[in-house]
Design a protein around this nucleic acid. Structure first.
Lengths: 229, 229
DNA sequence: CGCAAGCTTGACGACTATCAACAAAAGTGG
DNA sequence: CCACTTTTGTTGATAGTCGTCAAGCTTGCG
């Protein structure tokens, strides 16, 4: 809960370019550090703060009564969290590894939106690109086979993780991938190892995936759309 | 392509309240009428316009190379379409029935956002609530059984359709429901008829569904979240 | 009246979840 | 530094859900 100048912010800026600096808000931010698996906020709680990821990784998810889990998105350094308009969080956010965040009071953010149209543009761009990602996610879950889902996932996160690799070793468990893709952990494991046998990927250490044959994966993905920013 | 004063606008206003009037933009809107099944824009096309639905209904969807279809949302009178920040449409929009739209030039809308913070708020609220809906959709597609999906769908659209019933008879084909729920048309038919045998719904005419036992459906839905606005 | 589009129903098979056992890593504490 | 425990990943056997194919049935419309 202590103020700190943001050492890690430089790498964060690097990812999404200068445009995504949450302009004037930085002055009102507080740096918060979360340990692995710590909950940042829970579904149903008052949305008092919004966040920017500086270092580490976050999963955003929904849970059913009976424990079924669906991950909605993985956030990496540079990404914004909880900039929606709702006063109550509809999702839960958890740190995947030790994670550093910049935290902003939502009331102050909304006040700034009244006058600062640049901030407004940033927020709109964030919401827009989250929506585009969600739409691709919907197509994936609704109409793709297990193999296509894994291929899509690898291609989507490959680029991002290269950029985030500096900050931490790929913090992505099989079960997290499964809960993102709407599959079981076993199925993800099977598909990945089949891809390994076909020479499409390498699995050096567990929780570490290296793409060897990107174009074959693109064929498998069976898709049509322009990948969103 | 002719200007017209919006006769149907009153019922549209009724749905989402006075807040959702796309404030100053109305002056720059043109009323457009689409016949059933007409494409409003295609994925990949330049996003020149944004729209507000005045009457009828629209489906927004994505298609794979091999023809698999996934519907992302159904839009009803009062809903806004294509207010995202991207310059290229990532989705296709089609009229489900004869549909009346108000069409706004995006460049002008974006220009107004520079100064009009009320419009900015409206756009942010629209994007936010679309994102909430998308997140529920992701949970549904990733983790729910066919029966749970249909129950969720009925509950989600029941309220909306009561409001929209005035404008047109439920324009929803089994195949559209199936493509929204990530199921086959046959499965949707089977689940609906099973629900009918259990006295949960009535199926007076094809493409017409009446809910008889809402609370049982809520149990079936197997969910936990606060339904979004 | 007859055709076309959409809906229902059944039979069958494919895909993927579940269960279970084991292997491999990663912590943990002596 | 090494047993020990816990967590995570792999692999196989089995079963269930849902997609596909096909036929027949309704409904609406020309």
């Amino acid at each position: 809960m202590y103020q700190r100048t943001h050492e890690t912010d430089a790498s964060a800026q690097l990812r999404l370019g200068a445009g995504n600096s949450v302009t004037g808000l930085n002055a009102h931010g507080v740096v918060v550090v979360c340990r692995a698996k710590q909950e940042i906020f829970a579904a149903g709680a008052m949305a008092l703060y919004c966040y920017k990821v500086l270092d580490g990784g976050i999963r955003v998810l929904k849970v059913c009564r009976d424990g079924r889990r669906q991950i909605l998105e993985f956030l990496l350094p540079g990404d914004l969290l909880a900039f929606g308009a709702g006063d109550i969080h509809a999702t839960t956010a958890e740190a995947m590894t030790r994670t550093t965040l910049m935290r902003f009071p939502r009331r102050r953010m909304e006040a700034m939106l009244e006058t600062d149209s640049t901030l407004g543009l940033e927020v709109r761009k964030t919401l827009s690109s989250q929506l585009l990602l969600a739409q691709c996610h919907i197509l994936l879950l609704g109409r793709k086979s297990a193999e296509e889902r894994v291929a899509s996932f690898l291609l989507l996160y490959a680029e991002r993780q290269i950029a985030a690799a500096a900050s931490s070793d790929r913090p992505m468990l099989r079960q997290d991938i499964a809960d993102y893709l709407g599959l079981s952990g076993e199925t993800v494991s099977r598909v990945l190892n089949q891809m390994k046998r076909q020479g499409l990927v390498e699995l050096p250490a567990a929780a570490n995936i290296r793409i060897l044959d990107r174009s074959s994966l693109e064929t498998l993905e069976g898709d049509d759309w322009e990948r969103p920013v």
